[in-house]
Structures are given as structure tokens and as C-alpha cells.
Simulated assay, not measured.
Amino acid sequence: MATRTLAPGIYRIETVIDDKLHGYHVLEGADGPIIVDPGVIDAPTTVYRPFLEDRGWSLADVSLAVITHADADHHGGNHELREHAPSVTFAAHDADADLMERTDRIMRERYGMFAGEHGITYDDDTSEWLEGMMGPGERIDLRLRGGERLSLADRELQVLHTPGHTRGHLALYDPGHDIVIGGDAVFGRGVCTVDGDYIQPPPYYRAPAYENTIDLLLTLDPDALSLTHYEVFEGTGVEDFLDESLAFASELDALIPMLVDECGTITLREAVDAVVDRRGSYGLDVDLAYPLSGHFAVHVDRGILERTTADGVVAWRRT
């Protein structure tokens, strides 16, 4: 693990899990240390505890955990954290909170969201991997909306609603030091291993909201952007990464009508395969279902496409 200070009272702890970078954050809160994302199932003890103890704290001192969104590697450690810090307050956006409270619900409604209409599911190994990152569900004590203020020892951070990857994704903004802690708010052209190989395409599924999140971050124009699965972006690197993220979304959106014209009627599975044929593999290619479904919905709203069925699953064709 490696640690760095992003600003006074804002620390980043970096570790590698399954060949993927995970950057977690600790804040010096007004009432004790604040954790941003408890992480995977054992991260509270394997990642956070050593850092806290080096600074004279313990897990029991953690007063608040702000969870950026409902994903196994971000909230999976909730149960272990609460076991060591019984008085901790869990805070998350209201739109994601229910998914965090029950493991069976997030597996069904988030990770299984394409099963019923599209016949697309994760294989057994991937499902077991996702479940293995999560402990038992825990109550979310404080449900946020975005716009709240988070008190540090000497200043306040702004809570931003940054949807796209999930409906309730949150980020934190320190206007005094011009830093955004963004979780999984944006993804560039994909997520890579620490060796630079693609491991996952950008898994946003609410396309307009995702683009609005990118526009928000471009407007804030922070000096530093600290996301979970990337090195910290600084200076002009922030704008470059955000532009790259927006470009991917725009290119995928423009590709949708072409794929429909080639096939006449196309299912989500066929669209995933077509994108891989054109662009190459992203590793976990099934996750292309997330952004593709979002962009198909946009074209339906525009009146360009309409939903139909093919072989018993949802498909799209020209209106």
C-alpha cells in the first residue's frame, strides 16, 4: 500500500486488488476520522486500520463513512467497519442506499439488471467474485441527496450528486484546495489493470446523467481529481481525462444507429458483440451492456429507435 496527502486533512490510501488499483480516502473530520468508501469486505482492517493506527487513531474512532455508491468494492466492507466501530454513521445517496443494505438485492437489481429483459448475466465465477467482496448488508443511517456540507476539522466539503455509473453516485469537493474525490464518477475509455491492460469498459448506464456529471466536473475545473481506480489526475490532466470520458460516450452514442442499420433489429447481446468486433475486447465485455443500454434508451427518447423483441428478449429497430 502507498499513501499520500492530497490536501490538509485529506489522505489517499492506494492498494491493488485483483490487479486493479483501488484508491481509498480518509478525512480528518470534526468528530474523528471519516472514511470515504469502506471498500471490499476486509478493507476496514487490511487497508484502513494500519493507516489509522499510524496516526494515533483506531477503527473505533471512525465517526462517519460516506459511501460514494452501491458497488461491491465500495460498500462491501460496511459490516466489518461497523463491527469495529459500532457508533459509525453510514451515509449514502438515497437512490443507492437500499442496494447497499441487502446483498441479495444488489445482486438481483444491479448486477442482474439485464437478466430478465435481455438474457444477459454474469458467469458463475464473476458472480461469486462480486459476492465475495461484500459482507452482510448494513443499515444506511443517513440518506443524502447532494448539496449537503461535510464538516472537516477546519473547513467544509461539498457533497455532489454525480449520477451515471449509478443513480445515486456521490463525490466530494473541497473548494478551498480545489480537489474532487470522485469514487467511480467517470471512466475515461475504460478501467485498466496496473499493467495497463483493459479490464472493464466504462460501466455507466444512465447516459445523459453521466454526460451531465462530466460537464459538472469540467465546470468545477478542479486542480486534482482523485478517483478510485486511477492515479490522481492533476492540472491539465483532469480536463484531458474528462474530455476523454465525454468522447467515449459521444462515440458510443453515434455508433448505435449504425449498428441498428447493419442488423435491422438488434438485441443488447448482439450490440455488445458488435462493439467488441469493432473496438476490441475490454476484458469484462459483458459490462458493455451498461453504457449500450443507456444510449439505446436515449435514441428511443429521441424518436430515432423503438423497442421491439427478438428471440424472446428486448431488441431495437428504426422507428
Rank of each mutant, 00 (worst) to 15 (best):
121 T>K: 06
49 R>V: 02
305 L>K: 05
180 V>C: 05
230 Y>Q: 08
20 K>A: 14
188 G>T: 10
204 Y>N: 13
102 R>A: 10
297 A>N: 09
98 D>I: 13
317 R>A: 05
20 K>R: 14
80 E>Q: 10
282 Y>C: 00
279 R>K: 13
147 G>E: 09
125 D>V: 11
122 Y>V: 02
103 T>K: 06
134 M>T: 14
159 V>G: 01
310 A>E: 14
161 H>L: 15
256 I>K: 06
182 G>E: 05
67 I>E: 04
155 R>V: 00
122 Y>C: 02
179 I>N: 03
246 L>A: 11
64 L>H: 11
23 G>C: 13
47 V>Q: 11
213 T>N: 10
138 E>L: 12
246 L>Y: 08
268 L>R: 07
195 D>K: 04
42 D>W: 14
226 S>Y: 11
234 E>C: 04
243 D>G: 03
84 H>Y: 06
227 L>D: 10
190 G>H: 09
33 P>C: 07
300 V>A: 01
297 A>I: 07
235 G>Q: 14
6 L>S: 09
163 P>H: 04
237 G>L: 12
303 G>M: 07
268 L>N: 06
277 D>P: 02
149 R>T: 04
20 K>V: 15
142 L>K: 08
213 T>V: 08
119 G>D: 02
11 Y>P: 02
319 T>N: 10
222 P>I: 01
312 G>D: 04
219 T>F: 04
94 D>S: 15
193 T>G: 09
175 P>I: 00
75 H>Q: 14
267 T>G: 10
243 D>M: 09
261 D>V: 10
109 E>F: 05
183 G>W: 05
135 G>P: 12
42 D>C: 00
158 Q>M: 06
258 M>A: 12
23 G>S: 12
135 G>T: 04
143 R>T: 09
281 S>H: 01
108 R>I: 03
132 G>A: 11
80 E>C: 03
235 G>A: 13
301 D>K: 11
145 R>Y: 02
